[in-house]
Design a protein around this nucleic acid. Sequence first.
DNA 1: ATAAATATTTAGATTAGTCTAAAAAATGAT
DNA 2: ATCATTTTTTAGACTAATCTAAATATTTAT
Lengths: 218, 218
Amino acid sequence: MFSQSEENYLKAIFHLTTAEKNGISTNAIAEKLATKPSSVTDMIRKLSDKKVVSYKKYYGVALTNSGRKIAAYIVRKHRLWEVFLVDKLDFSWDEVHDVAEQLEHIQSPKLIQQLDQFLGYPTQDPHGDPIPDKDGNLKTIEKCLLSTLAKNDSGIFVGVDDSSSDFLQFLDRRRITLGKQIKVIEKEDFDESMLIEINSQKMTISKKIANNLYIQKS
Amino acid sequence: MFSQSEENYLKAIFHLTTAEKNGISTNAIAEKLATKPSSVTDMIRKLSDKKVVSYKKYYGVALTNSGRKIAAYIVRKHRLWEVFLVDKLDFSWDEVHDVAEQLEHIQSPKLIQQLDQFLGYPTQDPHGDPIPDKDGNLKTIEKCLLSTLAKNDSGIFVGVDDSSSDFLQFLDRRRITLGKQIKVIEKEDFDESMLIEINSQKMTISKKIANNLYIQKS
DNA sequence: ATAAATATTTAGATTAGTCTAAAAAATGAT
DNA sequence: ATCATTTTTTAGACTAATCTAAATATTTAT
């Protein structure tokens, strides 16, 4: 059994792990969890004793197979709860994160099994992120940042990188919602802004925005 | 804000408080929470500093108005979650307690507001216990223990005193479910068992069982 | 290759919540 | 009313999770 704090560390490492990076740094974890590097060292040592992370002093940390499975299950729970909040309790996609952050720690396999069924076995959360299956497998879809598209490319808006409340509310105001078709009409070299077409109308989008929108090319 | 532990103490005191008793004893709280009296003394002092309980050394403890309101809200959350688990996720009434015990600590007023609406503003949990309203008011119905009924009295089964899994499963096997009509056919002086009629059939019930079933007399 | 900057770890302290053992207060029995 | 029993509190210790400050290792820049 793992404490909430231990679970949060596992999840943070899971999210910081990408195909490229092998050892996750103490500082990166500390920043992600808004804690101090010294606290991270302590906790990592504890998780290492429990065989859920492998750790070599000064060389960062990585999840073991069992650690990855536990982390994926926490992410699964988090995302299922987000779907519940949006689909059943009429939360908007910018309101769900903090509550799901609490709900993900509830211990009850039956609860999650039944919730999954109740929600109709969803595969993505309200931000377009994939929901790991029971075995911790994550089916990622082919997607890229809007900023990487060339003039006249188009695709479907399938996810966000930053899911802060401010950003999500901005998207709501601009009527940029998951599943919409987006076409790049013009790219401005000077500030890297773009003119895009969505909902049959054109709008200008800054580089920062384009860097936070995932597109599935068509 | 109150920690999970503080919330559990408030809830325990809330449940131990009845019309008769004014000061709840340290030992009673310790037993309810499966902890030690010395731990209770420490926590009570802390809750007293926070003005949610009134406390005089050696004379027990009582909730203040604000303490009572907080405790009632935790009970409200617990019971709403129980309804959710039974009505929406197909849990049976003997499986919900431990999960609700965790869910009651989730902090999100909107979550509870929306859940309440989603469930259709229920007034009772799956065991027949009343759900406190938003202001912490508890509407108790007129009820008495089956053991207090006389021969030929009858009424509706509206709640249980003991809601342990074992007892609830026993009731399931005997087809004794909330809302059923029960009539006392015979009372046995010797062992205080009773012969009752339910579901148009007769069955014998021990004193212990009769002491755990609440009846609304008709 | 060395010095400066950065990252990480260690050492020691703190807080919340708990415990055991002993002391103190209240209660109950004669 | 006194003594024994029970209840409650106090004192001191422990663990998990965190922190600050100092020490050490690694990386980067010249």
